[in-house]
Nucleic acid binder design. Structure first.
Lengths: 330, 330
DNA sequence: AATTAAAATGTAATTGATTACATTTTTGGG
DNA sequence: CCCAAAAATGTAATCAATTACATTTTAATT
């Protein structure tokens, strides 16, 4: 493998000039640039990335902390990250954390050892042992920590949930169940707040007995729906905090011989690709998943290059997608 | 940040000894090992990974070439890869190639520049400009190239497709449509072969007019189903080469006022998590997705460490999962 | 042509770990 | 206690780029 020295010898210039030709071409005269490029072609020289990384203390790599790569929403976010990263000349290291703090910290430490230049965190955890670590470039996307100055890319989950709940209320539902995500998630809390706000606006009161917990999986949605629908005073609509749980809930309702939506309305959140094709097609909130990724990556890029990002807290637009899983209360 | 030199000074030994204490502890006396470890603790020394990578020409990183990370089957495979990689001390670089040759080559070149030590390719392409490149450790998983000596982890797609087709035939179907994947894929060819073999065994003849093409997406499945069901002599069963297309096909059948399975049987392939919850639940072939990943990673590990893997062509088991989307011919 | 500033180029140190080879220490058998 | 072999340790080169600083060349101005 040719080194920069081989190139410099062939071109009859110093290694510094070769290096500059590659990294700061405007510092090199037109003539020399030409000579160097010829020599590079002739030797088939490829810069040694490992040597460069070592010397510059940069790796042109970012680490993505994702609770679960197999979640279709997250995998779209990651696709957005990957595409933007590639465009900006960065590689993406995958850190599937399964929500475990140890793994998050392990991966986040790669920044301290310069194996990665920055972090995109898709979960609402701070991946540092020292909570106030302000040295690593990091962007929090999707499910964001509150009360820190970490840059974020998020949805206005309160507003989105409120809009969805309003939709349910406008259909005449007064007894609405919730299938909630885990309690310690910012997303869960925000969506719950939005939900409550809509109830209040509608003159309805919130009944905590109507809240069941799931873990964002289909079976957990089915279980929670079973509990909800077995209540003495069962709800006529169920607000689910993601699409998978809604799909599980629909399944469960059908199993219990209930018609969706005429007996029970069910709404989801995220608009994953299967939702359009569920039976009945799911009413949900669509989010621009890829854009979470591309925005987060772009923002991280600014951070890593010491440019203050224009906006440290990006809010992406959502859209209520009304399909056929919700309908008028009987 | 403390360097190995700081540690050696504190411990009163040479840098070589410190290095050996870490990488080949049995070459160092018990006493020295203790002293060095104390010094490491005292200085909070962490080896500089970049320097080590540079010196050893290794990065402890593997690159995964995946046609589409947002495909639920692939994302499970990647989860398997990630978990095993983490256990073996490797990081996973994500290469979402969108099936584009350029991107595959770009990512695969990271091995030549030592940015990665090996490649896991989930698509049936050879990611090298020189087709006979035998220098990079690489494992081909899921959709595997034929006629090379590349190690593979795959399903016996011929047998699996045959079994599924037999199931359809045993239900009395004689006119069976196919919604096929892209023509240039090994998986597609193998599944088609299995399908034809079953027809032949059943004394049925293959009719190429019954084959429609999709791209593994839900909408493409719906389109293909529409074509198939509009045929003058429409099939009574449809064999789909993945679950997404089957879900699209079911949707389309319903749209055309056909009952699944009493009017039309539809089968899938992969057993993604949504298939169990589709309406009707999908008859499909289940594959151990995570194990594709973990086996591929383990095999790659052997290859990267110059150990001949026990078995260069691993076949993983499949299982016919008969649910409710297939039924007796009327 | 002389002077000076700016541009281009070169020299050589630097980064931090690994490891071939050299040297020292330990071990065990006689 | 001596000696050879084995074990432990040390010395210093090495990996390939970047870059601070020094030097040379070019351009511009008088």
């Amino acid at each position: 493998m040719a080194t920069i020295r081989d190139v410099s010898k062939i071109a009859g210039v110093s290694v510094a000039t070769v290096s500059r030709t590659l990294s700061k071409p405007d510092k090199v005269s037109e003539k020399t640039r030409q000579i160097v490029h010829d020599a590079i072609k002739q030797t088939n020289y490829k810069p040694d990335i490992l040597a460069r990384n070592f010397r510059t203390r940069k790796s042109s790599t970012v680490v993505v902390l994702v609770p679960d790569i197999a979640n279709p929403f997250f995998s779209r976010v990651i696709r957005g990250i990957e595409q933007t990263a590639q465009r900006l000349g960065y590689a993406v290291l995958l850190g599937d954390t399964q929500g475990e703090r140890d793994r998050e910290i392990t991966y986040a430490n790669m920044v301290h050892t310069s194996q990665a230049d920055g972090i995109i965190q898709l979960d609402c955890h701070i991946p540092f042992e020292d909570k106030n670590d302000r040295t690593s470039p990091i962007v929090n996307a999707c499910d964001c920590v509150r009360g820190t100055d970490m840059p974020t890319v998020q949805l206005d989950n309160v507003a989105a949930a409120k809009e969805m709940a309003n939709h349910l209320i406008s259909l005449g539902h007064t007894n609405i169940g919730i299938i909630s995500g885990p309690e310690n998630s910012t997303i869960t809390n925000d969506r719950l707040r939005g939900f409550k706000a809509a109830l209040e606006d509608g003159g309805l009161s919130y009944n905590s007995a109507n809240r069941m917990y799931g873990d964002y999986s289909i079976p957990s949605g089915a279980m929670a729906a079973s509990d909800l629908l077995s209540l003495p005073d069962a709800p006529t609509a169920i607000f689910c905090m993601n699409d998978e749980m809604a799909i599980g809930a629909i399944r469960q309702a059908k199993k219990m011989e209930l018609n969706v939506p005429s007996d029970i309305s069910i709404s989801g959140f995220d608009d994953i690709s299967f939702s359009e094709f569920s039976d009945p097609p799911l009413t949900t909130v669509s989010q621009p998943a890829e854009e979470f990724g591309s925005n987060a990556m772009q923002m991280l890029y600014d951070l890593m290059n010491d440019e203050e990002p224009a906006n440290k807290n990006i809010f992406l637009p959502f859209e209520l997608v009304i399909r056929e899983s919700t309908g008028e209360k009987k």
